[in-house]
Structure formats: C-alpha cells, structure tokens
C-alpha cells in the first residue's frame, strides 16, 4: 500500500514534465511525420502524397551534397572543439586565484547567443571594417582585401573557428566537472608511483571521465550535424552552396520554396540518422565500460 502511494506521488511529480514533453516534443514529432506524407504548401490545399517526399529525397542530388558538406564540417569541427575544451579544462581544473578568473573568461562566449556570435564574427572578418583582417594587415600578411567568408576553404574554416571559440568552453565545463569528480587519492597514488602528467592524463584521467567524454562527443556530433545558424549568418551557404548544411537545405525547402512536406520528410530522415548515430555512440561507451 505504501509502495502504491509512493508510486502515485511520483506520478504526480513527473506529470508536468510528461505533459510538457507530450505537448512540445511528441505531438510536434507526430505532426512532422504526418506533414512529411503530404505536399503541405505554405498556402493552399494539403494533399496526401504517401512516401513521395521520401522517394524525391533519395533522388535529390542537392540534398546529398549538403549531407556530404555537413559530414565534412562535423569531422573537421569535432576534434578542435574537444581538444581546446580539454586543454582549457586541464588548465583550470584546480581551484586557485587565477582559475576563477580564467573559468569566467573562457566561459564568456557561451553566454552570447549563437546568432549574435555569428554576426560578431561576420563583421570581425569583414575585409573593410573588420579587426581581424586589419590585424593581419598590420602584421604584414598582405592587403587582406579578399573576404575570408567569400572563398573556400576560408569560409568553412572561419565558421569552424567561430564555433570552437563559442562552444569549446561548454565542453570545458563538462570535462572540468568530471575531472573534479576523480578521487584525489588516485592521482596522488599515481604521482607516488612516478607517473608523469601525460601518463596521468592518458591512463588515469581520461579513462575515469569516459562517460563524460562520450556525452561530450554525442553533443558535439549531434550539434554539428544540426548546424544552421552559423552558416546562415556568416556564409549564407556560399560560396555557391559549398557551405550549405543539411538543416540549411531543409530551411530553404520550408521557407524559400514553401514546400513544407519535403522539408518535413528531410527532418524526419535527419532525426532518424541522428538517433542512430547517438545510439551507436552510447552503445560504444557502454561496451567499453
């Protein structure tokens, strides 16, 4: 009887969260699934088209190109995000007078909105008025009158640089928290055994924060596969579509071509792909455990 009461109480506690998830996650997901099987124009009659949007997607070479570009971006952005985040976490893991300052300093880019950060970098890189080309000019790197964002691979690298600046501190916080959770005695023992810093990191720290590492990778990869804002603002997908990502293409289908049915089908496909990638990653982490 006591257990049942406890279960009932628990149910009432989680009910608001369940309602929230139902309203803002499950129902929209079902709506997108239904939309993906219709032509769903922004205006006009909605018609059921079955799996037409999905078969169209299979033959859509432009969409395929954006998938490749998104994967390239993900592969390129994930390592620097991780290593910069890890480096910063190692620098500030121990609490002292300086670390508080650096923690705040490193974490500051996180509090800036993604859109604002992208705009900030768009103008920082402007060859006419931006500080970065001006700095490079002053350092003798030439006229720097070509817009970095107007050429490949400059455009892609500039976006990666901005994302690393903006997000590595988020990874830093996660990794730092995990590192602080390691029993100090383990570290002290290793030091007594003569382990140098590098070996401590390789054989003690990283294995002990493996779960957090996994989470950091999942977040990083999922976030990169869903990249949109930074490219929309900084490169508009250019030059000539070479930095257009999957989600950017979905946005174009929805809000440029007003073809919400196709956009919904692509969104469903991307969601399933992301789910699979995340499942594989989680499984990989668990197996290693």
């Amino acid at each position: 009887m006591k257990t049942r009461t406890s279960k009932q109480t628990g149910f009432w506690f989680i009910l608001p969260a369940m309602v929230f998830v139902l309203l803002f996650f499950i129902f929209p997901l079902i709506a997108v699934l239904i939309m993906s099987m219709t032509n769903f124009p922004l205006l006009g009659e909605v018609e059921y088209v079955g799996l037409q949007n999905y078969t169209d997607m299979i033959g859509d070479t432009e969409f395929h190109q954006t998938i490749i570009q998104t994967l390239i971006y993900t592969v390129l952005v994930t390592p620097p995000l991780f290593f910069v985040g890890l480096g910063m976490a190692l620098l500030i893991r121990k609490t002292n007078k300086l670390s508080s300052f650096f923690r705040t300093f490193f974490f500051m880019p996180i509090v800036i909105g993604f859109g604002s950060a992208a705009f900030l970098w768009y103008w920082l890189l402007d060859p006419g008025t931006g500080y970065i080309p001006q700095l490079l000019r002053d350092l003798g790197f030439g006229a720097m009158d070509k817009p970095i964002l107007g050429y490949m691979p400059g455009a892609l690298l500039a976006v990666i640089l901005m994302v690393v600046w903006k997000f590595s501190s988020f990874q830093m916080i996660l990794l730092m928290a995990a590192m602080q959770g390691i029993d100090p005695e383990v570290m002290e023992s290793s030091e007594m055994d003569g382990a140098v810093k590098w070996k401590q990191l390789r054989y003690i720290t990283l294995p002990l924060i493996k779960r957090t590492l996994g989470m950091v990778f999942i977040l990083s990869i999922a976030g990169s596969l869903l990249a949109f804002d930074q490219f929309y603002i900084m490169t508009s997908g250019g030059p000539t579509g070479q930095t257009e990502t999957m989600v950017f293409y979905v946005w174009r289908q929805a809000f440029r071509s007003f073809n919400l049915g196709s956009a919904a089908a692509m969104s469903v496909a991307i969601s399933i792909a992301l789910l699979l990638v995340s499942l594989i990653q989680v499984r990989f982490i668990n197996e290693k455990d």
Partner: peptide, 20 residues
C-alpha cells in the same frame, strides 16, 4: 522565392558563378 530570392537558388548561383 525559390527561383530568384533564394540565396542558394538558380538566380544567385548563376550570378556568382558567372561573375566570380
């Protein structure tokens, strides 16, 4: 929107590929 206004649409792609 899709023929002209789209930043990755055919109009601007023609323009940028031809000129740049």
């Amino acid at each position: 929107n899709s023929l002209i206004q789209d930043g990755q649409g055919p109009w601007l792609r023609m323009f940028t590929r031809a000129i740049f």
